[in-house]
Computed example of a mutant assay.
Amino acid sequence: MRFMVMIKADKNTEAGVMPSKKLLTDMGKYNEELVKAGVLLAGEGLQPSSKGARVKFSGDKRTVIDGPFTETKELIAGYWLFQVKSKEEAIEWVKRCPNPLEGESEIEIRQVFEAEDFGDEFTPELRHAEERMRAQVAGRQ
């Protein structure tokens, strides 16, 4: 099972405040543990929303909204993609994580959809196209 693990933003991450040397060191050690255990598939920190944009969809219309975005509780400062056996295992790994922000912080864990989750609507033709695309992406890495 794959899980997206998202670090929620706060006023400091949104202001572009860089993590301390200690936090970078602690996170580096934590990431090494994830790699050695075969859990980590990907992970990155994200720039503040002031450097981002959103695209709002309304029928066929597309509207671009430039950052910054005001509600920091809904923003993501970084993420990991874990490969684990269960949600409980993902939770246990997250509980071992150094506190990613000063003071209070929150990390959200969400399971990623797999092909079999889509049922009959995901036809053999669509599955084949998806597999071909994933192979192309994997070949670039």
Rank of each mutant, 00 (worst) to 15 (best):
G103V: 13
S105A: 15
G28I: 04
D60K: 14
G78H: 03
E88P: 03
P19E: 07
G38S: 01
I7P: 02
D10K: 04
E114K: 11
S86R: 09
L75Y: 02
R134Q: 12
K56R: 15
D66V: 02
A53V: 06
K8F: 06
H128K: 09
V17D: 11
V39A: 11
I109S: 02
A42N: 13
E71M: 09
F69Y: 14
L23Y: 15
P98A: 12
V17A: 11
R96E: 10
A77K: 03
K8H: 07
M133G: 00
A53K: 14
T72W: 14
V84H: 04
Q141Y: 09
V35D: 05
L34P: 08
K85L: 10
P124V: 06
A53E: 05
R96H: 14
K61I: 13
Q47V: 01
T25A: 14
F82A: 11
K73Q: 03
K11R: 09
E32H: 06
D66L: 08
L46C: 02
P100D: 08
K21R: 12
N31V: 06
F3K: 01
I91W: 00
I7D: 01
K56Q: 15
V112Q: 05
F57S: 09
R2N: 12
E89D: 10
F122M: 08
S58L: 11
I107H: 04
M18V: 15
T72D: 08
G43E: 11
R54E: 09
W80Y: 14
V112I: 09
V5E: 00
R2E: 12
V35C: 06
E89N: 14
K29Q: 06
C97R: 05
G119C: 13
V94Q: 00
E125P: 01
V55M: 15
E102C: 09
L81S: 11
K95V: 07
P19V: 04
R54T: 01
V55D: 06
G38F: 07
E33S: 14
A42V: 10
K8A: 00
T13F: 09
G43S: 12
Q136F: 02
R54V: 00
K11A: 14
M18I: 13
G38V: 03
V55P: 01
M1F: 06
A135G: 00
I65M: 09
L40M: 15
V17P: 03
K11F: 02
W93F: 02
G103F: 11
T123N: 07
I109Y: 02
F69N: 03
G119Q: 02
E44H: 08
S105T: 05
P68R: 14
S86L: 07
E88N: 05
F69E: 03
E92Q: 13
R134H: 10
S86E: 05
